[in-house]
């Protein structure tokens, strides 16, 4: 564990808490893509199957359980509890266009052709693009509430911090995992446009509004 990974994990958990609190407090999931949240719940389920086979540390187990539980809670809030406020007219990204290619890629490019390893790889590839329905929704409506922007910023920072973690581990521990690194790079790049708008607008107190 190094500082970058810890900060990355904290930023990841912060993003999830921001989103859950926003929906819970306002009893509204307007502006939130339920499809992205379904993809994230899929990602954690596929990746953390090793909870039952491999013990790494108490921290690792605790965080995995939290990620799985909170991702399902978020999906439940959007599709059941706050269903009336769900923006389904704008949340129209076809997730099969993300699921199928990442699944095929995971079958083709993986560390080892076993069920657990292919599913782990699938989760890594799928996570890298899972935010696209959310970014698509924001681009369709042309704006995002500040709280949604904070959520996206925390979520984008998480993989960015992991990139620093991987750089650190490469030099300090002679350890690297190309699948995670390349997917993490793709994931971080997808947020770049948003990061720019967040820094130039949201941090100056303005609402995130896309140029017409």
């Amino acid at each position: 564990m190094n500082i970058f990974r810890l900060l990355g994990d904290l930023s990841h958990i912060l993003a999830i808490i921001i989103l859950l609190l926003k929906i819970w407090k306002t009893r509204s999931c307007a502006g939130i893509s339920g499809k992205s949240q379904i993809l994230f719940a899929t990602v954690y389920t596929m990746r953390y199957l090793d909870l039952v086979t491999t013990y790494i540390s108490a921290y690792n187990t605790f965080m995995k359980v939290i990620f799985i539980a909170t991702s399902y809670a978020t999906v439940f809030l959007i599709y059941v509890k706050c269903k009336a406020t769900y923006d389904h007219n704008h949340d129209t990204f076809r997730i099969e266009f993300l699921i199928l290619p990442t699944l095929v890629l995971a079958l083709l490019i993986n560390h080892e052709f076993t069920i657990m390893e292919v599913l782990w790889t699938f989760s890594i590839y799928l996570e890298s693009v899972a935010i696209l329905p959310q970014l698509f929704l924001v681009s369709k409506t042309g704006e995002a509430e500040s709280i949604t922007s904070h959520y996206l910023f925390a979520l984008g920072s998480y993989r960015g911090l992991y990139l620093l973690n991987w750089l650190y581990r490469f030099y300090a521990e002679d350890h690297y995992d190309l699948i995670a690194i390349i997917a993490g790079l793709v994931q971080t790049v997808l947020y770049c446009d948003f990061f720019y708008l967040y820094i130039t607008k949201v941090l100056k107190g303005k609402k995130l509004q896309l140029p017409a």
């Binding site: 990841h12 560390h111 190309l178």
Partner: peptide, 10 residues
Amino acid sequence: QKLQAPHDEL
């Protein structure tokens, strides 16, 4: 390359 098996990151 040292394989990440088990995967120790989140």
